[in-house]
């Protein structure tokens, strides 16, 4: 055994990590090598002095289990704030969240607009029984059905008007009066 190997084994032996099978080999080397014996003695001595000095120290620590647990509790109280900061700190997450929110807002607005639009149009005023309540949200299918119904109703009304004979004034004494009638007729149509 070389001295380098012996020193490695001396160190491992001091920590209890030397393979028991290697001990006889180390012991045989130590019997022959004064330098390695001196190294082993120095290791033992240095470690002992350091350990004795350490045990003589007054450890002036004020930390106890209570202070540790109190600090853990205090930090736990501010975890949600950290979570928000972490969320903001990730631009990709923030961008994705903004896109989802924008989509949802846009979709909701489109549906609401589509549902409320018939209530403000003149056609719906002709069909009060079908007009949606302002707070009611219609589906797109319902809105499409209503538009088709209104279209048929308008077509039927137009057909009736075409079949009806035109009523003309038989006597116009005042030209201004005829204008008023004409204006009224225009408004009716």
């Amino acid at each position: 055994m070389k001295c380098d190997e012996a020193i490695r084994d001396i160190l491992l032996e001091s920590s209890g990590e030397l393979d028991p099978a290697q001990r006889p080999r180390l012991a045989a080397h130590l019997e022959q090598c004064a330098n390695c014996r001196a190294y082993r003695d120095a290791l033992t001595r240095v470690e002992r002095v350091a350990q004795q000095d350490s045990r003589a120290e007054v450890v002036a620590s004020a930390v106890t289990a209570d202070t540790i647990l109190t600090e853990i509790t205090r930090r736990s109280a501010i975890v949600p704030r950290r979570a928000r900061v972490a969320w903001i700190a990730h631009p990709a997450w923030s961008a994705a969240a903004a896109m989802v929110v924008a989509f949802l807002v846009g979709f909701t607005a489109a549906v609401l607009w589509a549902g409320l639009r018939p209530a403000s149009s003149p056609a719906v005023s002709d069909a009060p029984s079908r007009a949606p309540v302002a707070t009611e949200v219609w589906s797109l299918d319902d809105w499409m059905d209503l538009q088709i119904d209104l279209l048929f109703e308008e077509a039927a009304a137009l057909a009736r008007d075409l079949q009806r004979p035109v009523e003309r004034p038989t006597e116009i004494s005042d030209p201004r009066e005829s204008e008023i009638l004409f204006e009224e007729a225009t408004v009716d149509v």
């Binding site: 002095v49 004795q52 000095d53 003589a56 120290e57 007054v58 450890v59 002036a60």
Partner: peptide, 11 residues
């Protein structure tokens, strides 16, 4: 503080 409070000359 612990170091200052400790031991001997050898220490």
């Amino acid at each position: 503080p612990a170091t200052r409070a400790a031991g001997t000359d050898l220490g």
